[in-house]
Simulated scan of single mutants.
Amino acid sequence: MFNLGFLWLALSIGSEITGTSMIKKTNGFSKLAPSVLVIFAYALCYYALTRAMNTIPVGVAYSLWCGFGIVGVTICSMLLYKQKPDFPAILAMALIIAGGMIMNIFSTM
């Protein structure tokens, strides 16, 4: 049976990536539109994360949230800010993704 918690977790991860990626555009929260977006994205992020943790074990939810958030923000920084990860960063992100998948698939938490 499908666990609705994973949709909440995906929403949480997506909004966390949005909020974190937009922080640089706020210019120290001196620009209104990006600042409002960051605040809204983080509020949605934590609301959705609390909903996800109703059905997903905390350790699994948080590790997926952190890991995929890191990878997502890095990808956004490549697109928005032209930052280029080097080989160690790419390797680390691959390990993060692998760890999240292993924990999600094989963990009995």
Rank of each mutant, 00 (worst) to 15 (best):
N27Q: 14
N27L: 07
S21V: 00
S63A: 15
L91V: 01
I39A: 13
M22D: 11
G5W: 02
R51Y: 15
A48I: 05
S63T: 03
T55F: 01
Y81I: 03
L44H: 11
A92D: 13
M53Y: 00
G99L: 05
G14K: 03
C76K: 15
T108L: 14
D86E: 12
G100C: 15
S30C: 11
T108R: 06
M109D: 13
C66Y: 04
F68H: 04
A89I: 09
A92I: 08
R51G: 03
L80P: 04
F87Q: 13
V36C: 05
G19K: 05
N54A: 10
L32D: 12
K31A: 02
N54Y: 14
I96T: 00
M1G: 10
I70Q: 08
S15C: 10
F106R: 10
V73N: 05
R51F: 12
M101G: 12
W65L: 03
S30H: 08
I102D: 09
F68R: 03
M101K: 14
I39M: 09
M1R: 01
N3Q: 05
L80V: 15
A89E: 11
I23R: 07
N104E: 11
N3A: 11
T20A: 11
F40C: 13
Y42A: 11
M103S: 08
W65S: 07
I56E: 00
G72K: 08
F2P: 15
M22K: 07
M109V: 06
L64S: 04
S12C: 07
A61H: 02
F87C: 13
L79T: 11
P88V: 05
S77R: 02
P57H: 00
W65P: 01
F40T: 15
F106V: 10
I23A: 15
F6I: 08
P57S: 06
Y62A: 10
L9V: 09
G14C: 02
